[in-house]
Every structure is written in C-alpha cells, then in structure tokens.
Design a protein around this nucleic acid. Structure first.
Lengths: 192, 192
DNA sequence: TCGGAGTGTGAATCGTGATTCACTTCTTTG
DNA sequence: CAAAGAAGTGAATCACGATTCACACTCCGA
C-alpha cells in the first residue's frame, strides 16, 4: 500500500541517501514487487516528491510551533533555530537529503518549497523583530536564507565538524549563539 | 590537449551545471572526439576532479589574499567574505557547482577539500580575533562552517532572493553585515 | 457462480551516458 | 625516409536503473 511505500522510501533515504533509494530497493523494503510501485505512483519522482512533501511538512510545522508565542522576536528565532537544529541532528542523513542532497527536478521542486517555507517562517519573525526595535536593521529575507544555510552547513553539511567529535548539545548551543549574534539582537536586551 | 579539455569542461559546468557536462559535450566543445578524452583522463570523474581542483584553488587563493594584511580580524573576515561573495556572484552557476551541486563521489571528494579550505581559512582568522579580544568568544570551526553555509545559501543557493530582484551590490553589502554581526565584532569596535 | 476492478508480479525493454577498442593520422627520432 | 609511439576517432558495447506489460490472484456485488 501507498503508505508502506512512502515509509520504505523515507527509511532508505535516511540510511543511504537518495542515491541508494532505487525503485527496486524501495519495493524490496516494502515487501512488494517493482511493478507494484507503479501501481501506486506514476513515477519514481512522484513517489519521492511525496516523501519529501510529508517530511518537510513535519519539520516546518515543528519549527513553526517552536516559534509561536508572544516572546520577543530574538527568543522566538532562537527557539526555532534550536528546534530545527535538534531535529536535524537526530536524523542527519535524512536532514541532509531534505536540505541539500541532489535529486530529480521533480523532487527538487518539492525541496524548494520546503526551504522557502523555512526561510519565510524566519523572515516573518525577523521582520517583526526589526519593526519592534528588538533586532538591528537588516534585510529579513537575506538573513533568513543565510540562517538556513548556516544551520544546514554547520549541522548536516560536509563541513560539520561535530560529525566527528560529537557533543551534540554543545554544537547546538554554539549554533544558537551564532544565530543570535547574526540576527543582531540589540544590546539593551543582551545586557539586561 | 589536456588544458583544452579542462577548460571546456569548466565552461560547460558554468553554463549548465554538472548535469549538462557529459563526456560527449566536453569533447565536442573542445573540438575533439569522445575517445580522445580518455587519452588524457582515465575517467569522467578524474577530469572533473581536476576542473574542481583548479577552480577551487583559484577561489581559495583569492579569499586568502583578501584576508592577508595586519588589519583587525573582523575587517579581514569582512574582506574575505566580500571577496568570496563577489566572485561567486560573478559566476553563480559555476559557484553553485563548486559549492553544492551534486557530483560523483570522486569529484565530491575534491569539493570537500575546497569547502574545508574555506572553512579553515576563516577559522584561523576567527581564532586570532577571539584571542585578541576583537571577537566574542565562540567556536571558530562552527562559526566558519556556518559562514560558508550562509554565504552559499544566500548567494547561489535556491533561496537566494537576489536571483530575482538583483541589486548585487546591496545583496553583498547585506551579507557582509550579516557576517560581521555573526562573528560578534565587539561593541567597543563597533561604537568607535 | 460469474465478471471485473483493484492489486501484485518480475522478466523484458528502454534510455542515457560512460567506457572501450580496432583503426587511422600525426610527430618524432635515428 | 622508415618505424615507433603518441594522439585522435567514433561506432559499438556496457552498466544501471526506471519503466512497461502480459499474466495471475483476490475480493466483492450481481
């Protein structure tokens, strides 16, 4: 069934990335035959687009939830970043696939939606913060994109040092600090 | 000849990305036959590894040069970031390929070296800055990785807003500001 | 019980590019 | 100049994975 296929595909991505996830392996993992996959999805890229869509929605929802509330903007950004980071660290490989791994054009489109959702979420809060004078003046869209890039690169990207050493909590804390500085939390708040 | 092939390959990447750059197209652009390519390189991935290696070296050298001098660390970082950004904007597609586009494992290894070189360059200066008290206390490696991610994402990544609107200079200026805040330039310096 | 819609199967087919190779030019060099 | 070797050629071959399809099987509702 449909769900089983989506799950199997997701598991394969989490384990070996998009490259490992062939139709044959998905079918096998789901305990079905290759042809059956096509009974439920018109193409590989449709299947994976669905995998990405569902996973993305989950992630974005989690971040949105973390940023809700009437705290000051800087605190909400920090909470959002921390949630994003913590979840990504829990499933690095999968996060990497979601964020950056190469995929078919069809799936790529889905990924775009995902990244943009992250960016827009952050940008909205940044805008509020700037307007409220809690953050220094800046281009919210650029800052948001840069934050997404920074998080991705430092956590799940090929450069992520923590991969090796690995005190996850310390890494997340450092990253959150980085983001707080980057958004220009105004001094009055810092010193308080 | 070798050089001609490397150039042709680089041009193709710059135009259409790694995907467009097939052996057949490289050969054609170089005015040679497919078989000839294999006279000079044992495989496609060896050829492209060389393309990446050379281009990376050029970029890293440029950034290193921009960061040389006895200015305070924050200024040197800013100069490095600006150089990185300006050059990337000049050849977005190519920069994207260098930074993030999907490639064979063999080429990927080369890319890794490149990103790491960037990170190490930035991390070294950050370390100096922290030691000199010019920058707030932080994990230089994480900050450096995050900066690389931020620059890549906001400039050449799929989220880059400038792609559309496009005041390049303004974008670079915003990005440099972002990075300056992110590295935690100490207030004494800012206020001065 | 019959018919067909929905589902499952997996070997065969296709498409796309990388890689090979038998053969044909050059280019030296003695 | 002749022979060896380097460089060039491109049609044929290979590999690999997505996609198709002719053939079951199962489960209702008529």
């Amino acid at each position: 069934m449909r769900t089983r296929l989506v799950d199997a595909a997701g598991e394969l991505i989490a384990k070996g990335g998009y490259g490992e996830a062939t139709i044959a392996s998905v079918a096998q993992r789901a305990g079905l035959a290759v042809g059956t996959v096509y009974r439920h999805f018109p193409s590989k890229s449709a299947l994976f687009a669905e995998v990405f869509r569902e996973a993305s929605q989950r992630e974005v929802d989690a971040m949105a939830a973390a940023m809700r509330g009437d705290l000051p903007a800087p605190a909400r950004i920090a909470a959002g970043v921390e949630t994003f980071a913590r979840r990504a660290m829990r499933a690095r490989r999968f996060a990497w696939a979601l964020l950056a791994e190469p995929v078919d054009p069809g799936v790529e489109a889905e990924r775009l939606v995902f990244r943009r959702a992250y960016r827009d979420l952050l940008a909205a809060v940044l805008r509020e913060g700037v307007d409220a004078g809690e953050l220094s003046s800046q281009d919210p869209d650029l800052t948001a994109a840069a934050l997404v890039g920074a998080i991705g690169e430092s956590l799940v990207g090929p450069l992520s040092a923590p991969a090796a050493g690995g005190d996850t909590e310390a890494t997340i804390a450092s990253l959150v600090e980085f983001c707080e500085r980057a958004i220009g939390k105004e001094r009055a708040l810092v010193d308080a």
